[in-house]
Design a protein around this nucleic acid. Sequence first.
DNA 1: CTAAATTTGTGCGTATGTATA
DNA 2: GTATACATACGCACAAATTTA
Lengths: 260, 260
Amino acid sequence: MSRTAKLKSTKTRRSFLYSDLLTALRSRIANGSYPPGSRLPSLAALTKAFGVSAITVRRALRELVYEGLVQGHQGLGVFVKTKPRIHRVLAGDPDRSIGDEIRRAGFVPRLAEVNQGVIKADDKIAARLGLRPGASIFRHQKQTFANDEPVALHRLHMRPSLARTLKKELGNAFIFSLLKKHNIPIADLRCEFCSATVTEEESKLLQLTAGHPILRVDYTAIGPEGSPFLLGETICRPDRFVFEVNLPQRGKSRPRRPER
Amino acid sequence: MSRTAKLKSTKTRRSFLYSDLLTALRSRIANGSYPPGSRLPSLAALTKAFGVSAITVRRALRELVYEGLVQGHQGLGVFVKTKPRIHRVLAGDPDRSIGDEIRRAGFVPRLAEVNQGVIKADDKIAARLGLRPGASIFRHQKQTFANDEPVALHRLHMRPSLARTLKKELGNAFIFSLLKKHNIPIADLRCEFCSATVTEEESKLLQLTAGHPILRVDYTAIGPEGSPFLLGETICRPDRFVFEVNLPQRGKSRPRRPER
DNA sequence: CTAAATTTGTGCGTATGTATA
DNA sequence: GTATACATACGCACAAATTTA
């Protein structure tokens, strides 16, 4: 045998080969046996070392890719990724743009416009903006890169009237900075966090295989009069982002204690 | 052929069979051809209908499972899931417990304690709570179910002194209600959202296969004196939860105590 | 420049295990 | 016990990308 114990074979087993291999590889990455930037043994080497078939190794590798721990390149190998996450703080400070935070994580940020234009709002978008279904709505799509790796896709929906003011600059600036620059106040920002998997369009733009999980933030900016005027979606690589919010709790839980 | 066009075969193709099948099945679910609760055609039927091999169908099905659109049961079939999501609002109102929100989504909530006890804090936990590494810390784990399906796993870390007050009730109640009941005020709640994949322990508790993506919320409760006193983690099925927060934007320097 | 070798990634046919009816 | 169905696993083939001779 030698360095690598073969995985247990199939009789009356309660764990699965791909799962055992997955945790084995995970722990080797975690403990530094496969340090960041290094190449994993080739598929052929792994099948031999662990005594399993190629399809089993492939599955474990794919899960590691979904997890963001490794990245494969055809003809080259599978490499352990360095893992600094972009820490996105949604804190009511429009100065903290996503570009700053990409830089703070040690990457070089880049912004690229995907497309923009007026479309007809579907029912959901219209409802959220308080418009009738089918109303004309301006949509803008752009992408952010970190060290030239696409990490997030940004979609904005707003009324054409607002778009007239902003559209020229949307390709090169981040939305909250723009709103601030034009003195358009936001009274409230409602955010929704969920995860999903890429659609076909997103998989091309983010360079991910079909079925790759993503982290998604939907936000609604509400004006001082209480009406929503801007919808945003951020679809991002889950291995690249953490979102942070602060919620001051001056709600009703206070036992009216005398302060200080 | 007949009703179902065979997928294009391999010559000079730029899309992949599993991906085409994935989008085909997704759209059939979306447009109601496969309504919620119904059974998908068996694996054998799908291989025949689409003219692809079993492994290709399996892969597409697994992605659909990760997506939360379907759920397989051995010996029975693959079923389209009904998709009401639990809408978790973190809004500074401790009365909105997760149990209420599960009920609001149309499910019957259930709570089950997994385990609890005093352990030694690892470096990360200790740092976040302002303790020295290795300090004794109380950990509590429980699970929530929606219609007896496990949907989330909850981990709490707190100092043993605080645990003495709460530990008896932690198994049957939700943490924010408990804090309110015992008049323990929270001044600030810091939340982090990210997605990841299940660990081995989590996969068993949540009944998910290894590698299944999850949505994770880490929160830190901060007392009136400004020091963190409670860490919480919620690991949940991504197809079952949306988290919502409201961020009032009071200009650039937000007054700490607005009124009074 | 071309050809061979290596490596990832998709795909096929088949076998086996396990849960349900 | 028999049939059906999901799920893992094997050996093999081929396409695409990269490196090397």
